[in-house]
Design a protein around this nucleic acid. Structure first.
Lengths: 112, 112
DNA sequence: TTATCTATTGACAACTTACACATAGTGTGC
DNA sequence: GCACACTATGTGTAAGTTGTCAATAGATAA
């Protein structure tokens, strides 16, 4: 969920789409091994929270009807909130990695 | 757990310590709101996995006996693994944030 | 003896994740 | 017609994880 929700919001901000294509989109952000059911469940959850709305696709293609999701204003706001959150998370990672490297550099040459 | 385990390993790599002081150490990496029980639970789990070993502190100070943890060779290896994992996570965040900014820049000036 | 600080642990509900499976429409080869 | 593969969206559930709250307990100071 940590990256699933923000990435879905980002993809939907770029253009509306249905679950099956969103799953492809997720893969391009490194989320290749996400279970399909997790994606559909996440989308449902996001609709309950009001971040997205869905409707059945008019034009029928190969396969059963597709539920098309599009971002709401609240979802757009959420996406902005998520970017801030991700920046904070990145800052934490940088702190940890920085401290690790610094500590490694300090101990350089030491052998126990 | 995502940041708790690697940060604890890092702190213990710097110097052995008991839970209560480690909790202070976590705060300096932004993990201020971690529940104490979560920390002790994580330490127990890490001991089960063989990343750390614990022993009761000889010298008694104010309060009940303290369980002192120190890193094992396996824990040291794990810490290195975690840094790689954190770098990957960082990469994912960069991808998402990069795409968001790029998309925002593209839509510049557009009003719907 | 009451309160406060240090220090560790237990119990349990809430939530998440992983995996398997159910459903269903369309197109293709036989 | 039938089997099969592909698209597409879901449900059920067991297992594992997290978050919250409280219990325990020693030392010290008022």
């Amino acid at each position: 969920m940590r990256f699933l929700e923000p990435t879905l919001l980002l993809l939907l901000h770029q253009s509306s789409g249905h679950g099956y294509t969103l799953i492809d989109g997720l893969a391009s952000y490194g989320l290749e091994e996400v279970d399909t059911s997790a994606v559909y469940r996440a989308l449902r959850g996001m609709e309950e929270k009001g971040w997205v709305v869905s409707s059945w696709d008019e034009k029928r293609t190969q396969g059963p009807p597709r539920r098309v999701y599009r971002l709401t204003a609240a979802g757009d706001e959420m996406l902005r909130w998520w970017t801030q959150d991700l920046e904070e998370t990145r800052g934490m990672i940088d702190d940890i990695l920085g401290a690790y490297r610094e500590h490694m550099a300090e101990g350089e040459g030491e052998h126990h």
